[in-house]
Nucleic acid binder design. Structure first.
Lengths: 228, 228, 228, 228
DNA sequence: CATGAATGAGGTTTCATTCAT
DNA sequence: GATGAATGAAACCTCATTCAT
């Protein structure tokens, strides 16, 4: 393992204050961020296999060699991108504060959030597809990501339990399955929109189609969890 | 035009009986079938970009040159695989005869069929992911595939209408959205099982998990379409 | 050497009468002619190295294997084309009957003939370029072609001598050099017309340009051979 | 854009002095020069189609990959060679200073120069043949080459006009046609020497034959332009 | 006479990565 | 901290030619 700079640098914004004191470190930080952003675009557009180190360097406006210096190699760079992407979504999920919300509203909010997040971050879908094509090879090496997910499932479980006790939700709902369903209802539509639009001869990304989709999946999910 | 042999050949099993009799005979049909089968495996395992022509040739036990002879190139081969894959699923869908079935049973049957088909044909998921990564570039060139899908949506629309008239289904359900939801509930779980299993620290492919999943998605879908 | 059919067949039209009796032989003749014609086009368009056996077979509408059957291989085919091409021009030159013509007219006629022949048979130029790129490798194997040329040089020498005795031509003109000059004045213009037209930003193949060229080279040659 | 390095580099000999000092230094300039020189040899010997990138790399003593790094591909490399070749001849033509010379001497000098240049640079002939086989495909992309030629034609036009006013040259001579004739008289003889030598059974490249040829073409050209 | 099937050698090009400064 | 130069392995694809009928 050549360099773990990134494990330290791009995750901790804490020390950026100190970094200001030393402009070189500051540049190093920014350079790494630019590489990461460029890599995310490239991986999202072409997948892990199709991404080109040259292209990432060009997008980032840095010398190719720097990528190796900071991240070690293509796979490590991909993992760094994955970590950042997962980090972003988990952080956003936390900000939903489902634990403070009325159960039915909480589920609606999670559905809408998931849909909107995927819509705003199509790179997340592509990255996950790539990672699954590789059997989660990178993810399995990342203790950080593995530890990231628990909170939401826990929270969703609590929401379901509150709803059940309140008499509005059905019982026996596995929060993991529900979470996967909520994700899947958005994911498949957006991730496969090119083939689906082609086959159904219908532009699934048109604004009207998108708002209809959100209504549809909300109804599907609520139809399932709500009693009556 | 050499490369349309497969359009004719791989669909006609007519003379394959004779071919089986003498495995050593030069048999263009069987050779193409073997190439297609090998290509499907390779593309499914590694994606379009990661697949290797050499590897496909080796798997098929044929000279690499033959792949170009029969299919023209990697992209055309990928399209041929896509066509076969889509053909298979469409044919299986037709065999469901949803139009002759009680509406609620028809939806349940479609859900179960979709789940089981994806489970039995994981290559379909990977191929679709690859094709979407490439923005349906191949699919758009295939008139055959574009014409394949209409029947099922039509049938599903009829089922929904019958259920509504019968007073058991809610109205206003778009069959395209419902179809995408049914697919998405299975697809996401299976296609992303590696990352999901890792993150949730739970083997989503264990037999028990699988049967639970089918129950879950059936309940989700029926909870949505059924009144009450 | 696999087959010398062509050495016998395509050159002797004598036995075609007999061939009529046997339709198979007749077809064989025609097939070889078609291959030769297709090969000439292909070699002319792409050169020896750029020509494709597949393409020749397709142009000729025959199975690729037949080319090998009749001609043995690419090089032998190229030689056959060369032989036919040389044969055509030599035969046309003989038909000029320069030996019966007034010396000045004879030279003018040769100039015009050469120009018009190259213009009508651009393939000749390309074939010669290819053959020279290969250092006349094929030509050197063809006793037939080597024997073809003498007559014209002999005739041109006689013309020059007649002109000199008549007091209209300068003396000391080497017919070989003159012949090469006459050819070169046409050849270079036509063979290199693509680069020349590009560099001089002037369409050298426009009808007007062509007729001007013939006038020009006639004047150049006559200005040289005529006294005064 | 990497592939325009050569447009800048191979024309500037500025720092090559330092490079010569240490043959082991990494020197992009020299490497490109070596690739260009090797490419010129290979293209001249085998034509564009027959040239092998492997062979060029070997001749240049560089890694094959570097050719793509600096030039982009075979076609771009060929164009770079063409540009250098054209640049060389145009520069040499400029050095003739025909505009300062007596008209008749100027034409004689141009004839001799052209002959000697083609003789000394047989690669020029082959390259042009290749480029014409490809219908000036590369040349048309090169603004640099298209702009190179005007000066000489202009100068030759001035020479002809001076000669005419002086009463020694005939009028109405198109400098483009004359230039093409001067070139053609040398070009055809040298470019086609292999077939011509074979057919005429006469070694056209023997020293005596060469000097005779120069005399001959000089007489042809002067016989045309001079009055009387 | 004729042909579709098949192949080995080799071609151009790509790419992640390392070298040397 | 940063960079241009360089590379080996391997990818896709092409082509003249032969096989089997």
């Amino acid at each position: 393992m050549r360099s773990i700079h990134h494990l330290v640098n791009y995750l901790t914004m804490a020390n950026s204050a100190a970094a200001v004191a030393d402009p070189r470190t500051r540049d190093a930080d920014r350079t790494q961020q630019e590489i990461l952003a460029a890599a995310m675009d490239e991986f999202a557009e072409r997948g892990l296999g199709g991404a080109r180190i040259d292209s990432i360097a060009e997008r980032a406006g840095v010398n190719k060699r720097l990528i190796y210096y900071y991240f070690g190699g293509k796979d490590e760079l991909f993992l760094a991108v994955l970590e950042q992407t997962y980090g972003d979504i988990r952080e956003a999920e936390r900000a939903l504060h489902l634990e403070l919300t009325d159960p039915a509203d909480a589920v609606r909010r999670l559905v809408a959030f998931t849909w909107n997040h995927y819509l705003a971050h199509p790179e997340f879908l592509t990255l996950l597809n790539s990672e699954n094509l590789h059997r989660a090879r990178h993810l399995k090496q990342s203790k950080r990501i593995r530890e990231m997910n628990s909170p939401l499932i826990q929270t969703l479980g609590d929401v379901l339990e509150r709803g059940r006790r309140k008499g509005v939700f059905r019982g026996g709902v596995d929060p993991v399955h529900l979470y996967i369903s909520i994700a899947g209802l958005s994911y498949f539509y957006l991730s496969n929109n090119h083939t689906l639009s082609t086959i159904f001869a219908r532009d699934l990304m048109a604004p009207k189609a998108l708002s209809e989709r959100l209504s549809h999946i909300t109804e599907v999910v609520m139809g399932y969890v709500l009693l009556n």
